Simulated scan of single mutants.
Amino acid sequence: MSRNPLVMNPIKLFKLGQKYMLICPTDKYLAKSFPEIKIISYIKLANYYMGPTLVFLFFWQYYLNANLILMIISAVFLISLPIQGYLWLGKRATSPLPINLLSWYNHVKQKLIDNDVISESKSKTEQLDFIHFMQLITLTKNHFGNYFGEDDNNQENFN
C-alpha cells in the first residue's frame, strides 16, 4: 500500500506531519539543504507565541472596541499557520526522494550496514521517501554524532 499525499485524508496528513516533525533532526548543517527543518522551527515558534497572541487579540477586541470580525479572522489565521505547516510536513514526508539524494541515501545506508547498526534489507521494494530518509539521518546522527556518512577524510569537517 503506497501513501500518496494527494489522496491522503487531511487528518492522516496532519498526524504524519507531527510524526515527521519529531523524526527530523534540527541541525544547522542540514537546514541549508532541507526546508522542513526551517518549517519545523517556525511551527515551534508559532506554537510558543500562539496563546499570548490570542489573549492579546481578545483584549484588543474587548477594550479597544475593535471589530469582532477582525479579531475572529486574525485568530483563525494565526491558528491556521501551524496547521498548514503540519500539513506541508505530512506531504513532504510522503514525497519520493529526488534523484540527487538517492546516492547520499545509499551511501549513508551502506555506512550503517557496514558498522552493523542496521541489517541489509532483503526486499527491493523499499520506499525511498523523505520520512525514511530522515529516519536514516537521525539514526546516523545518533551513532556517528555529526558525521553524516561522508568520506572518512572529510569527517573532521563535520565535527
Rank of each mutant, 00 (worst) to 15 (best):
T140W: 06
K15W: 11
S2N: 13
I99L: 09
V108S: 08
E156G: 09
N67V: 14
V7Q: 03
N115Q: 13
F133H: 08
N65R: 07
N115I: 12
K38V: 00
L16K: 13
A75G: 08
S123N: 11
N153Y: 08
N154E: 15
H143L: 04
K19W: 00
L68P: 14
Q84Y: 01
Y48C: 04
I69P: 06
L16Q: 08
E126N: 09
K15D: 15
I137M: 14
W104R: 05
Y105E: 13
S95V: 12
S121R: 06
W104Q: 15
K124E: 12
M1A: 07
Y49D: 11
N153D: 10
A75I: 05
P5V: 07
I131H: 02
N65F: 08
P35S: 02
F59Q: 02
N159V: 12
D114L: 00
G90A: 05
L22T: 14
K111M: 13
G17N: 03
L57N: 10
P52H: 01
L87I: 00
H107R: 15
S80Y: 04
F56R: 01
N153F: 10
R92Q: 05
K28E: 10
L22A: 14
N47H: 13
E156L: 09
N65A: 13
L102D: 08
L13C: 09
M134C: 01
I11Q: 12
L89K: 03
M50Q: 11
L16N: 09
K109L: 01
S41F: 13
Q84W: 00
T138L: 10
P35V: 02
L87M: 03
I23T: 09
I72A: 11
R3G: 11
N154K: 13
Y42L: 02
I137Q: 09
E120P: 04
D152H: 04
K141Q: 00
I39L: 08
G51Q: 11
F133T: 07
Y147K: 04
Y86F: 02
N47W: 14
V76P: 01
F130A: 05
G85S: 10
N142W: 03
E126V: 09
F59L: 14
